[in-house]
Design a protein around this nucleic acid. Structure first.
Lengths: 205, 205
DNA sequence: ACAATAAGTGCAACGACTCAACTTTTGAAT
DNA sequence: ATTCAAAAGTTGAGTCGTTGCACTTATTGT
């Protein structure tokens, strides 16, 4: 449904849709904010759903209409993360290999180290110290496997359903998790990708 | 795992335990059997804990004293699976690479295809079609990462804490899961391990 | 024979999540 | 300007996995 408005000034800012959607977004944000605040204060497992709903001044049913499960409260605004991943591969510098591009992307993403920002550091600690959150995040992250595999296939000329593409995609997405258990995550990521890089180049014609 | 043993000679030696431990094992088996039967009949999500407990004629409290969570009801008798994994690497044929040994082990294990046995095929379908079970199984499977990484380090002369060893271990354990989403899982596993094989050999001096 | 130990029971509860019925708000079409 | 349908939100009861507690019963080592 294209937006054909008579008044062009009404649609200048990013996407301020009707008041309805704005209000919806507002309560959604209120819930997510309340949740994150409470989680950081007292830990994920020691905060109940009802408590969060109360803090955001909504009912628990409303809460669950915005977020499918408790874990999702923490990972709001995780759109365009897939887009970033895919373009990192597609628009990599001339001559750079696919695994190398993925490695750089992994190092660039702040999932490993929150340099500077103490608020983000606290967030990272919350996620990594809470098994439920770690697992959920990884599950969500792996949902990009198929899309990434497709892009890899395009970029490398392999058939779209070549298992090697899926494998590389999956392994690349798992790499950060593997690295997080090491004392020097950045080095670990690099080393894991060295393995993939060498293997991938050997597979190419 | 249900008591569908491939190798009849591999049955447990008759551990001469007291009547206490025998009874305990009996109720445990009764519970697991009832659970698997009901799950296969009506699907994992459509069978409740209380129902299983009733079928096995125990209280839900007793049930949870034997199995930590619902998913564990399906994966009983999963010991010595780590031992098999480790020896597959340690006692591989002369001149065979570590990834190759892991690939063979993956192909040998019946997690991919239940050739012939229809009961095991049904079991596999149950697990693969139930997200909760798939995830739980993978989580349990990944618990062997550290042990496998240590063996890999020993066998290859790398320092015990080299991230490359952890990475290879992790990727190798993930490979079957990646392959299951493909139409020809055995080929997919082989191809995934080809990637690892090539990369690993390139990392060696 | 006798405590110590462990298995098992019953019940009540908690927390996450769902469902159905209902009210209010909002965006538009008439 | 009125009316109407969809969407957002509420309420309350209920399911389901899981735990805690107090209790009984059976087995074991001494």
């Amino acid at each position: 449904m294209p937006d054909i408005t008579t008044d062009p000034a009404a649609t200048v800012p990013p996407a301020p849709q009707g008041r309805r959607e704005r209000k919806k977004a507002a309560t959604r944000k209120a819930i997510a904010d309340a949740a994150l605040r409470l989680f950081l204060e007292r830990g994920y497992d020691d905060v109940g759903i009802r408590e969060i709903a109360d803090a955001a001044d909504v009912s628990t049913t409303t809460l669950f209409k915005h977020f499918p499960v408790k874990e999702a409260l923490v990972f709001d605004e995780e759109d365009d993360v897939e887009a970033a991943l895919l373009t990192a591969v597609r628009e990599r510098p001339e001559g750079q290999s696919v695994p190398a591009a993925l490695c750089e992307h992994a190092l660039r993403s702040r999932l490993l180290t929150a340099d500077g920002d103490p608020r983000f550091a606290a967030f990272l600690r919350l996620v990594n110290d809470t098994p439920a959150l770690r697992d959920y995040h990884q599950r969500m992250w792996l949902r990009h496997t198929a899309a990434l595999a497709r892009v890899i296939a395009e970029e490398s000329g392999f058939p779209a359903d070549d298992p090697a593409c899926t494998a590389l995609a999956h392994f690349a997405l798992e790499a950060p998790r593997v690295a997080q258990d090491h004392d020097d995550p950045r080095r670990a990521v690099t080393r894991a990708f060295a393995l993939l890089e060498a293997g991938w180049s050997a597979l190419n014609p």
